[in-house]
Design a protein around this nucleic acid. Structure first.
Length: 271
DNA sequence: GCGACAG
DNA sequence: ATCTTGTCGC
């Protein structure tokens, strides 16, 4: 795993709530919500678009400079005593799985909206210890800058390790969509702006609601994802990458596979 | 007091 | 997140 760049900011579940919140403000101040990475993000394009394009799929994936992208997700063993978290990581390159690892740890604190990183951050860092490859980018299940103090779990882990990170949430923690989110077409995005409840100037674009998939017809519609910068990635690029990494499903592949692995690994672990 | 609230 | 049967829709 990458070295710890900010030892003092490693999530500590024994901190008081006030300490956690002030640490988050510190993290937000250290975070970079702009593109600061070395790989070529333009080469990450939606597999479905690539397939429909004129050139063969192989053409978009040749040399060995493709970035390693890791998806991170958790499952929980809530029946055990104490409750435990299973953190799973799937590292991919060029649409291929390079490595899958997981770690199980006891949970220290309950889920509190806004303090997720203090519940799941430890388990995640432990799982990273088992990785042999060094990802160029991490995708987390949860928010990044779309957070009361602009320091969601993707930002927290990103800053602690000083690695490019993006938050991909399935529901909106805070902020206001700049427009309606009903029945958006695939590829569409809507800015999520800071409001009075967010520690940022009102109207600041914190991230985007991103529609990766949509039903062709019908009454129901698929909800968008809420994508925001974690660290060293700007909001537009974060949205581009989330969309580009989604294949046949709503979730970007690295996260979808991490989600599945977290579930299957839990079965193995119990047995 | 009331409402909102990632996973 | 997790616990779970049926059920609506293509």
């Amino acid at each position: 795993m990458p070295s710890i760049s900010q030892p003092d900011l490693v999530p500590d579940a024994s901190s008081t709530r006030a300490e956690m919140e002030s640490q988050q403000r510190e993290i937000a101040a250290l975070a970079t919500f702009e593109d600061r990475f070395s790989f070529d993000a333009r080469r990450i394009t939606n597999p479905l678009e690539a397939a429909s394009a004129d050139k063969p799929l192989e053409a978009a994936s040749t040399d060995g400079t493709q970035p390693i992208i890791a998806g991170v997700d958790q499952s929980f063993l809530l029946e055990s005593e104490p409750e435990r978290a299973l953190s799973a990581i799937v590292a991919m390159r060029d649409g291929e799985v390079l490595e899958r690892v997981y770690a199980v740890t006891p949970l220290e604190i309950p889920y509190i909206p806004g303090l997720l990183a203090f519940r799941e951050g430890g388990p995640i860092l432990k799982a990273m210890t088992n990785l042999s490859v060094e990802p160029d980018l991490y995708l987390f299940d949860g928010s990044g800058r779309i957070h009361y103090r602009q320091a969601g779990i993707a930002t927290h882990i990103g800053v602690v390790l000083d690695v490019p990170a993006i938050g991909v949430a399935k529901s909106l923690l805070c902020g206001d969509p700049a427009d309606s989110l009903e029945g958006l077409a695939p590829g569409t995005r809507v800015p999520i702006e800071a409001n009075a409840r967010v520690d940022a100037p009102e109207g600041t674009v914190l991230g985007y609601a991103v529609q990766t998939r949509q039903y062709e017809s019908g009454t129901r519609s698929i909800n968008p994802l809420y994508v925001s910068p974690g660290h060293r990635v700007g909001p537009e690029t974060a949205a581009d990458l989330a969309f580009g990494l989604a294949a046949e499903y709503k979730l970007p592949e690295p996260i979808r596979l991490a989600d599945r692995y977290a579930t299957t690994a839990k079965r193995e672990y119990r047995a």
